[in-house]
């Protein structure tokens, strides 16, 4: 059994959108290496509540790496020092006794801070909404395998559909570009027969919304893909570009 640790947390505190915000130092004492990062914050927050102070606001929900709400910047990287995990899946054994951990919210003009470490990610929702619908027949349940699709295409689509919308791509990118997110959302549909009907309209609308929200443009540093907890690949971005270029020349207006 590894020994318990004492850590220093340098945490961003900000009351609300209007507040300017500042860093505050907290001690996290007697931290078990088997705690998850969020459990460690829970313990610190218990102490703060006992002292009558405002606990650190941090977004979380599933705590099993699938909802994407727990994104924070830890020591200069989204979701901390490991690859392909979310903050809730990060364990304290990856830190060492006496370490200072800097915890900040995602920084992007399109993700304004709501409180402390929680940012407003509704820009992502608006991009998805702009993507619109796919056309399928309603009525009785369709026959299984009525639409033939190869296993490769299916898997390729699922690779993109793994995106949990956590925003780590935007947070990691030096341009705060949302291209990995947008391309994952567009690609998982375009890689299936059902999603192909509205492909042009969807690419144009989602990119337009992305620009409107103020995300930067992708310069292929590949930081997004490296930091994506689901390991979404750069080929999604290439595919969105192909879709977008084609759509611009094809759509009749």
């Amino acid at each position: 059994m590894a020994k318990n640790m004492n850590l220093k947390l340098k945490v961003w505190r900000q009351k609300n959108k209007e507040d300017k915000g500042r860093f505050q130092i907290y001690d996290a004492t007697n931290v078990s290496p088997d705690m998850s990062f969020l459990e460690m914050i829970d313990v610190v927050n218990e102490e703060l509540i006992k002292k009558g102070e405002d606990p650190i606001a941090i977004d979380h929900d599933c705590r099993e790496g699938i909802c994407g709400s727990c994104g924070v910047y830890i020591n200069g990287r989204p979701h901390g020092p490991l690859r392909e995990i979310t903050t809730c899946q990060l364990y304290m054994r990856h830190f060492h006794d006496g370490q200072t951990i800097v915890i900040e919210p995602w920084r992007a003009a399109a993700f304004p801070v709501i409180k402390d470490l929680i940012v407003d990610r509704s820009a992502f929702d608006r991009i998805i909404a702009a993507g619109g619908f796919i056309s399928v027949n309603t009525g009785g349940a369709p026959d299984a395998n009525a639409i033939p699709i190869t296993k490769d295409d299916q898997e390729w689509s699922l690779d993109a559909a793994e995106c949990i919308g956590c925003g780590a791509c935007v947070a990691a990118c030096k341009n705060a570009s949302a291209m990995l997110f947008v391309s994952a959302k567009a690609s998982h549909l375009v890689r299936l027969p059902q999603g192909k009907i509205e492909r042009e309209r969807r690419a144009l609308a989602m990119v337009a919304q992305m620009e409107k929200e103020g995300f930067g443009s992708c310069t292929n540093t590949e930081a997004c893909s490296a930091e994506c907890p689901k390991g979404i690949s750069m080929d999604a971005i290439a595919q969105l570009r192909r879709e977008y270029f084609k759509a611009n020349f094809k759509v009749r207006k």
Binding site: A172, K174, S217
Partner: peptide
């Protein structure tokens, strides 16, 4: 132009920023 626009998209800078963990120096 791209550089200016992209800089604006970040807004507030990070206190602790470790981009060498995820991208090449050349690309940045």
């Amino acid at each position: 132009r791209l550089w200016f626009l992209n800089k604006r998209s970040r807004g507030q800078a990070y206190e602790s920023y470790n981009p060498s963990a995820n991208s090449t120096l050349f690309s940045r």
